[in-house]
Design a protein around this nucleic acid. Structure first.
Lengths: 117, 117
DNA sequence: TTTAATACCTCGCTATACTATGTATCGTGC
DNA sequence: GCACGATACATAGTATAGCGAGGTATTAAA
């Protein structure tokens, strides 16, 4: 298995990193944004997202930043790190290798993004 | 989650059905064929494939057929059923919806197979 | 005859995503 | 003022996929 087998199970962490690569966001905001971006096709549940964010933090890919006036609602914003950007780039490349291969098997042709890209 | 969440975890069953849609095959042969088709990018382990084949059989998507002269090596060939072909078609469509969405998020464009296909 | 490849199988482990639940703040309507 | 839904964080328990490790047996090659 030259490709990370985890890719088979999910792209959750990579999707989260992708969103954070554009702007810092807080958990609840990420959940809503995915709902919109996917056109309702899929959504992240809280029980999925928060542990993922904590795991990304542990690995040093994101850094949290509490924002909010004292005594008011606190929002935990996450910022992607340099290491996180490297990880994102690597995982997206892996995604393309994986999907290219699946497309070839499913539809009997080279992946279009290799022909055209 | 309008899309089957299982897709996030794996495309294994669908890949197996895809191979069986072309010709009947036996387990060990499927493992070797995937190794070749994926160019060594990934492979199915026996601990994964055999349970998958049994699950597909339980669902009625494939039917087993023992082949081999009496007293000689027996090979358990699997044949895809009509129901299995319907499932395959449905799952491949689901795969395309899913990857289109991910591509859009990752690379900020409509999936190429929608633009060109 | 020993070894590697072929060919089938199952048990237990790990990791992911989900459900359910808990806590607390904020905005709106009455 | 307060009830209620939306916002915002979090964790515990559950289900399941894929894998590692092990088992059995046949066949071919050294």
């Amino acid at each position: 298995m030259a490709i990370d087998k985890e890719l088979l199970k999910g792209t959750t962490s990579t999707l989260v990193l992708q969103l954070l690569s554009r702007k810092k966001m807080y958990g609840y905001e990420i959940i809503q944004e995915f709902e919109i971006l996917s056109g309702g096709l899929f959504s992240f549940k809280e029980g999925t997202l928060y542990p993922v964010l904590h795991a990304l933090e542990t690995k040093g890919y994101v850094k949290p930043e509490w924002v909010g006036a004292k005594g008011s609602r606190q929002r935990k914003y996450y910022l992607i790190t340099k290491s996180g950007r490297n990880q994102l780039k690597s995982k997206k490349a892996e995604w393309q290798r994986f999907t290219s291969t699946i497309e070839k098997i499913f539809f009997g042709k080279e992946a279009l993004n290799e022909i055209n890209g």
